[in-house]
Structures are given as structure tokens and as C-alpha cells.
């Protein structure tokens, strides 16, 4: 097997654009050389940003490293590039299994099995999971109940058309202003993206707003959504940003579970 690594390394050295990085990263992962595997996969993904297989192998490495959130991002990226990617569906099923979410496990396994019905192990896994879900296991409960649980006192998830998807924002007088804010946040999101693009700042990750009455953090869980997390004035912006990012990950998983 050492020969495999040497041969693949030589191939990649001779031609850095070669797809040999896929096999090399996977081989290193299987040997437990995760840091090296991740470096190889990162380089490959950077060179081939539209190759779903690259994100799939990256997802496996990240999952082995215990980086579940990053692995989730890698596999959802793979699915965006190739919606029928079996490896990505299996990876997401694995992550869902780790978080004890059998409904999502089943959904991903079924999708994977649809695309490769000849995989007997996969078909058996679907049957076992289906039986457990039918048995009313508590872990099969819908993941959609509290998609923004980590979002603090005020959290709002909206789509790019300005429609509220989840969460709520209350006016200080107690009235709900979520729909008004949702509509305005869509315009804010467009403005943020335009500003980052035209000022050549790259892809934006977070917008923090400090005011006398509140602190806000805005993040984009997906390309088509924006999430606002609000807290008391004086909340350290960095802390709120972390809260918003956690809520965004949950929102991303929730949206993904809805098939959006």
C-alpha cells in the first residue's frame, strides 16, 4: 500500500491538476494520516472547485477529524454540485446518525439507494433504519421543531425574497415585527453582497451591528437565506457572531432536511 501512496504522490507531483488527489487523500485517510489527507484534499478542491468528489473525500476526512459542521458543509456542497452524489448522501446520513436523527438518516440512505440499488449493504441499511423509524423511536422525531434553538432571544431566518422562514423579532412594545423586518433584511442582504463584491472584499461571512438598544449579527446559512440574531446592547459582538453561526448551522441543517 505504501507503493500506492508513493505512486499517487508522484503522479500528483508530475501533474498538480491530476485527479489523483482523490485517491491519495482517501488512501491517507484510511491510514489515519488525517492532517496529510486534509492538506491533499484542500489543494485538490481549490484546483477543482466544481468537482463533487473532491468535497466528498473532504467530508470523510473532516468527519474522521470530528469536524462535523465542516463535514456537513463539504457534503452539502457536493450535493449542490451533483444532487445525485451517493457518497455525499451517505456522509450526511452518517452525520445524522451521529446526532441520533433517524428521520434524516433514512432520507439520505433512501436517496443514496435510489441512485445505486445494486448496493446490497445500502439497501439493508435502508430497511433496518426504516424499521426503527416505523417503531416509533424517539430519535426519529422531526428535526424541524426548533431550527433556531441556539439563536438567543431574537432570531429570524428569512429567504432572499424577504419572506420569514422561522423565528421571530418583537418590537419593544411587544408587537411582532418579524414580517416587516424580514422584508427589509432581504434588501440588506442584497446590499451586503453588492458591497462585498464591489469593494473586492470577497465572500462575506458576518455583519455585526451595535446599537444603543440592541446588538445584531447577520449571517447567511445558505446562498438563499439570511439569519438575524439579536441580543441586548453591550453583548460582545464576537460572542453574538458565534451564536449566530451556530444558529446558522442549525438553520442550514433544518433547510437541508426540508430538501431546500
Amino acid at each position: 500500500m505504501a507503493d500506492d501512496v508513493q505512486a499517487l504522490t508522484a503522479r500528483l507531483a508530475a501533474d498538480p491538476t491530476s485527479l489523483a488527489f482523490l485517491a491519495l487523500a482517501e488512501e491517507l485517510r484510511c491510514r489515519g494520516q488525517l492532517a496529510a489527507a486534509r492538506a491533499i484534499a484542500s489543494g485538490g478542491v481549490a484546483r477543482h472547485p466544481h468537482l463533487a468528489d473532491g468535497y466528498d473525500v473532504m467530508g470523510r476526512i473532516l468527519a474522521d477529524q470530528g469536524e462535523g459542521d465542516l463535514a456537513f458543509d463539504a457534503w452539502t456542497t457536493a450535493l449542490r454540485l451533483s444532487p445525485e452524489h451517493i457518497g455525499a448522501h451517505k456522509g450526511l446520513a452518517y452525520l445524522a446518525f451521529r446526532s441520533n436523527d433517524l428521520a434524516r438518516v433514512l432520507r439520505h440512505l433512501e436517496l443514496a439507494a435510489q441512485h445505486d440499488p445494486s448496493d446490497e449493504a445500502l439497501v439493508r441499511a435502508v430497511e433496518r433504519t426504516r424499521a426503527q423509524v416505523a417503531g416509533g423511536s424517539p430519535s426519529a422525531a422531526s428535526p424541524t421543531g426548533t431550527p433556531l434553538g441556539a439563536g438567543g432571544p431574537g432570531t429570524l431566518l428569512v429567504d432572499k425574497q424577504g419572506r420569514r422562514l422561522a423565528g421571530a423579532i418583537l418590537h419593544p412594545d411587544g408587537s411582532e415585527v418579524s414580517d416587516t423586518i424580514a422584508a427589509q433584511l432581504a434588501a440588506v442582504a442584497r446590499e451586503i453582497a453588492r458591497t462585498a463584491r464591489l469593494l473586492q472584499l470577497g465572500v462575506w461571512s458576518n455583519l455585526e451591528v451595535e446599537g444603543p438598544d440592541a446588538t445584531w449579527s447577520l449571517v447567511a446559512p445558505t446562498q438563499d437565506t439570511i439569519l438575524l440574531a439579536a441580543d441586548q446592547p453591550g453583548t460582545p459582538p464576537g460572542r453574538l457572531a458565534m451564536t449566530a453561526e451556530r444558529a446558522a448551522r442549525q438553520a442550514g441543517q433544518w433547510l437541508e432536511s426540508l430538501g431546500t
Partner: peptide, 8 residues
């Protein structure tokens, strides 16, 4: 306000 992005 602070807008954070990849390159600045």
C-alpha cells in the same frame, strides 16, 4: 457596523 469577508 462591521462587515467581515474573506479578503477584508
Amino acid at each position: 457596523l462591521q462587515l467581515r469577508a474573506d479578503h477584508g
